[in-house]
């Protein structure tokens, strides 16, 4: 059991892991990829770098620094987080337990961008199988996704219906499924009051609901399932102590919105650890 699990290896998560380590807390940093910073070519406005530094280089140095100070880092993808009451973080490769979790996975991922999508949010489009699956017992379920996250949702949905179609929306399917798979890009969603048809180039498919589990789950996906507040831009809402309304669930960096800058992310990460340290002490 770790004191804290930090999810996300960007500047917010890595800084938080370093501070927690310095507070003598056992901490595990789980990271998947280089995120937004990994795509940044030039950083000229971050304190102390006389020459331009690239995002990937800054990340590499941050991780080396964290490792030197004793932070345990694993490269893995988090699939689900549960708190009952201790935190269980399930990844593709393993499962970890902790007293608190800090979400620092950056901005929410893009969702399905097709004609009709926005009209049906809450009207047959769902982002959460465990929340809404039950409503669609024995109905025609569509599930958009292509990776482990989709499989995770599929496992839940199988409890409710046998009639499930996977839509990869043109992406490569990186998982084995027994269900019917539609690999063409989705062009449009149709329906009267609620969504009832998925339209691709060569066909149309009847559905009663469309679940979205594209790519990897983002902080807002975790927050939604755990009952943490999100704002209208899907940012995770935290209090002044960087804690969500779910006790022990913290968030920092781009995940909580505001200034999307490294300096703000590192500041968030550091401040969050002060509250995490206090929170753990009071457990």
């Amino acid at each position: 059991m770790y004191d804290a699990i930090v999810i996300g290896g960007g500047p917010a998560g890595t800084t938080a892991a370093i501070y927690l380590q310095r507070f003598k807390k056992s901490v595990l940093l789980i990271m998947k990829d280089a995120g937004a910073l990994g795509k940044t070519k030039h950083i000229d406005n971050y304190y102390g770098f006389e020459e331009t530094i690239t995002g990937p280089e800054l990340l590499k140095r941050g991780h080396a620094q964290a490792r030197r100070l004793g932070v345990e880092i694993v490269n893995d993808e988090v699939l689900s987080i549960d708190n009952s009451p201790e935190y269980t973080v399930k990844t593709i490769k393993s499962e970890y337990k902790s007293k608190v979790v800090l979400l620092a996975t950056g901005k929410s991922q893009a969702t399905l961008k097709v004609k009709g999508f926005n009209d049906f949010i809450g009207k047959g489009i769902s982002y959460c199988a465990i929340c809404d699956g039950f409503i669609y017992r024995d109905k025609k379920i569509g599930l958009v996704g292509n990776k482990e996250f989709m499989l995770e949702e599929l496992e839940i949905l199988k409890n409710f219906s046998k009639d499930i179609t996977i839509f990869t929306d043109g992406m490569d399917l990186e998982a084995d499924v027994e269900e019917k798979v539609v690999r063409e890009k989705i062009l449009e969603l149709k329906g009267e009051n609620t969504v009832s048809k998925v339209v691709t180039k060569s066909d149309e498919y009847d559905i009663d609901v469309l679940f979205i589990a594209i790519g990897s789950p983002s902080a807002s996906d975790f927050a939604l399932r755990m009952g943490a507040f999100l704002d209208e831009k899907n940012n995770v809402i935290v209090d002044k102590l960087f804690m969500t309304n779910v006790p022990g669930l913290f968030a920092a960096g781009d995940t909580i919105g505001g200034l999307l800058q490294i300096v703000k992310a590192t500041s968030d990460g550091a401040q969050a650890t002060v509250s995490i340290n206090r929170y753990i002490k009071n457990l």
Partner: peptide, 19 residues
């Protein structure tokens, strides 16, 4: 409770909860 009151949930086309 949508589990107990499927009729009401249906009538008001509840497709996502909480609504």
């Amino acid at each position: 409770n949508v589990d107990e009151e499927g009729y009401l949930a249906n009538q008001y086309r509840i497709s996502s909860i909480p609504t």
